[in-house]
């Protein structure tokens, strides 16, 4: 007789069905809401989506947020890759210190952060205080701290930093060349993972942008919500899609990591 696969526990089914209801109903309902016709309040019209696509502010703010995300990613990588590399290579004693500092933004509410930033940098030059690429990017790099550090730290732990560095330097490479040509390709997956998390944060952050009065994508969503509920639900789904894309890219990288692409690390 063949052994049959045991059945899933009934209580587990109840839990999972209830969870699926709570989490999926708002998404489905938002979609149904977004295709309601503005005139008749009945299904189905894609007018809300057409209106969003033809809304200049939609594209403008989306672009502002996306450029901001890229800037935050670049600054974070420049800040963290050399630091975490150096710490793993030469000063492992500092690793817990940096890990602790990188965790702090987890417990500092963004609303508190922005109050402090606005106070400190009130008299700062125009290009810093009044441009999203200035104070807002600086704040978002801090928000990305925990994600960047823990992704990169895990990446550096999985490679043999000492052997790679020695090999590179005994072949005559300089420090910058070692970092860019040898180390970076080996922690590419970790750097990408941190970058996608940073992207998700920047594309959704509202608190700091609102208090510092910058017009980013989440601010646009809030604004459209005050004027047109149907368009608002369409944009809500766009926002959910962006988060979903960023997170599934992350998982996709995670699955590839440790696969055949990673050849380094053997002693």
């Amino acid at each position: 007789m063949r052994l049959r696969r045991p059945k899933i526990a009934p209580s587990a089914v109840v839990w999972l069905v209830l969870a699926a209801l709570y989490f999926l109903v708002p998404l489905v309902a938002t979609f149904l809401f977004s295709i309601r016709s503005i005139q008749t309040n009945k299904c189905c019209s894609f007018a809300a989506y057409t209106a969003v696509i033809h809304n200049g502010d939609f594209w403008h703010t989306l672009r502002v947020s996306f450029v901001l995300a890229l800037e935050v990613i670049v600054i974070s990588l420049i800040l963290f890759v050399p630091t975490v590399y150096w710490v793993h290579l030469k000063v492992p004693r500092l690793r817990p210190v940096i890990g602790f500092l990188a965790l702090i933004p987890f417990v500092v509410p963004p609303i508190v952060m922005v109050v402090g930033l606005l106070k400190v940098y009130k008299g700062a030059p125009e290009w810093f205080y009044n441009k999203p690429s200035g104070i807002l990017a600086a704040a978002y790099v801090i928000l990305a701290f925990p994600y960047m550090f823990f992704s990169l730290d895990a990446g550096f732990r999985s490679i043999d930093v000492h052997t790679l560095t020695e090999a590179s330097q005994s072949l005559g490479a300089s420090w910058p060349r070692t970092l860019v040509r040898v180390i970076l390709p080996n922690i590419r997956a970790a750097a990408l993972a941190g970058s996608f998390l940073a992207l998700a944060i920047v594309m959704g952050e509202f608190t700091i942008a609102n208090l510092a009065q910058f017009h980013t994508f989440p601010i646009f969503i809030q604004y459209i919500g005050e004027t047109d509920p149907y368009q608002a639900s369409a944009v809500t789904l766009v926002s959910f899609g962006i988060t979903w894309l960023a997170m599934s890219s992350l998982l996709f990288i995670g699955r590839k990591r440790g696969g055949p692409t990673q050849v380094v690390g053997a002693h």
Binding site: A200, G204, I221, T236, F240, W244
Partner: peptide, 9 residues
Amino acid sequence: VAANFGGIP
């Protein structure tokens, strides 16, 4: 996704 999907949307 859901843990990161907060805010206005």
